[in-house]
Write a protein that binds this DNA or RNA. Structure first.
Lengths: 306, 306
DNA sequence: ATTTCATAATGCTTTTCCGGCATCAATTAG
DNA sequence: CTAATTGATGCCGGAAAAGCATTATGAAAT
């Protein structure tokens, strides 16, 4: 295969015109150049493509099959260029999106739905993961953007606030505190706590534990679960109480009660988090979309670092 | 699209190595040439394909989609060359084959089956047509080869004998001649004849009528049909007698009787007939095959012309 | 039969393109 | 800070492709 796309284009012209001079005109080259190009092609292929009989040009069977293939090739190249340009501009592409329990229980579904309507040619691929796993996958390029518990400061990354939620205490309905409209955090000092597994939920508790310490206690952990559904389940079994956030408590099952915590004004932030300079049009569009929807301004006075 | 296959091949190498120097080695060119080719490609596409960060080369999403397409393109080109060469050599292709009633009732099915086994990649497309129609279609390039009643002499064409058959008289079973082991042609002088339609069966009767004239009569045609099945049907109805050939009479229905004609030693030839210089490998192979199977040598002393 | 016309092929020259060498700039490793 | 590696750039030479002019050939017209 020592010929080029030029030979293919020339061949198609001759095959369609069955006339070297006309084909040369159509291509905007001189007739001898065309003759030689076709000769070269035939020599490379070791195949007679045309029968030149001084008054007419006939295409051979082999030429006809080559013509079909050539049309296919130029079409796929055209299509390739078009698609590549669309992916470059972001108009087309795919995004691997990580999300936490809090994100998926909150704003994320609405955001994704709205973006999908704006950009129907971008495929969204959401994956559930806790914050630390998402950060690892972002590092390794397995995710394009994560919706994680934040804020997080890390060089080479950017973030955008998505939602802020209050902490709420969740107890089973026969618990002594179940009837209360609100509680103070220190009232939980001697309760048994159900917990997210310490490794996975590291980020969440890095925000919650300082609050407990301020209220003068360290939570007494009696059970661990892997996700919020598991935690709620264990609470419903009467194994202890837990602290989660508004969005998750919106969907608690019967048998559980969510109680606001009076003396905790701090909120748990969920942020979108992504690597800068990924050179991906779809990402750019998605980030732009998120920043336009940034209703909850990022509080500059709480620069917690990871 | 002002780039060539060279750019595509270079791009694939860089995309696979993610390293300009190594890719250049693999391609057998110097690194600067490669850098420039990729730059040119990116300028033509108006798309960033790689992110060069002085210690590593990353491919962009757009680059990845372009890579997939490029792999497809080089594959289809390789496949195109292969297929084209096969068609050129004749190993692959298709043949449009015409046949008469006599041919299909005789040797042709066996011939086609045997050839098909030898060359499974050649598609055989048989079409039923009388001789004159086949000749017209051969002229117009609608057929590649015809199995016709011959011999035929026509410039630009060649032929090869396929079979020679005796003429036989066919009568309905209550006909006075039905009991005979053989007859002489002149005994049919005053019979009613069923005929192939004069236009379509022109070629057949150009061989038969001279024999009748030699025996001193012109057949008295009372009915015409379009093909041998129709003729046999009319004979079975008692509308007259007819003269056909061995092969056709082998498959006559009950109610009909085939009687040899003593004084007619002339045979009806079926020949393969094709245009010379068609520049088609499959045709060449088929013709070669037919000539090897030429058991019935062409009788040089009966040069009847069309 | 001869002339004329049209077509594709060929010879030669010019232009363009592409590759190689040397070098530069930038980043990383020690 | 130095050395080494990597991709980009400048410049030059050679090969490839195009253009122009011409030829050879076959068909149509006279």
């Amino acid at each position: 295969m020592k010929f080029g796309l030029r030979h293919i284009r020339y061949f198609i012209a001759v095959a369609e015109e069955l006339h070297f001079r006309r084909a040369a005109e159509r291509l905007g080259v001189a007739q001898p150049a065309l003759s030689r190009a076709i000769q070269y092609l035939e020599r490379e292929l070791e195949v007679t493509l045309f029968v030149r009989s001084k008054r007419e040009v006939q295409i051979t069977r082999a030429g006809e099959t080559f013509l079909k293939s050539c049309r296919g090739v130029v079409n796929s190249i055209g299509h390739a260029v078009e698609t590549t340009r669309m992916v470059h501009s972001g108009e087309m592409g795919s995004l691997r999106i990580g999300y936490t329990d809090m994100a998926i229980a909150g704003q994320l579904p609405t955001l994704l739905k709205e973006f999908q309507e704006q950009r129907p040619n971008i495929v969204l691929r959401p994956h559930h993961d806790v914050t630390v796993t998402q950060l690892k996958k972002l590092d390794e390029g397995e995710l394009d953007i994560g919706f994680v518990t934040g804020p997080i400061s890390r060089t080479g990354y950017e973030q955008c606030p998505i939602q802020s939620e209050n902490f709420v205490c969740i107890v089973y309905e026969s618990h002594p505190l179940a009837g209360r409209n609100s509680i103070r955090l220190e009232e939980l000092a001697h309760e048994d706590f159900v917990h997210g597994s310490s490794k996975d939920w590291e980020q969440f508790y890095s925000y919650l534990f300082p609050l407990c310490r301020r209220s003068g206690f360290v939570p007494n952990i009696v059970q661990e679960a892997f996700n919020s559904a598991g935690i709620l389940g264990l609470v419903a079994c009467g194994m202890g109480v837990t602290i989660l956030t508004d969005s998750v408590s919106n969907s608690i099952s019967s048998g559980l009660v969510a109680i606001p915590i009076e003396d905790v004004t701090e909120q748990l932030q969920t942020v979108a988090f992504w690597k800068v300079g990924a050179e991906d049009g779809a990402m750019d569009l998605f980030v732009e979309f998120l920043q336009q929807h940034d209703v909850h301004r990022f509080p500059a006075d709480t620069p917690k670092t990871y």
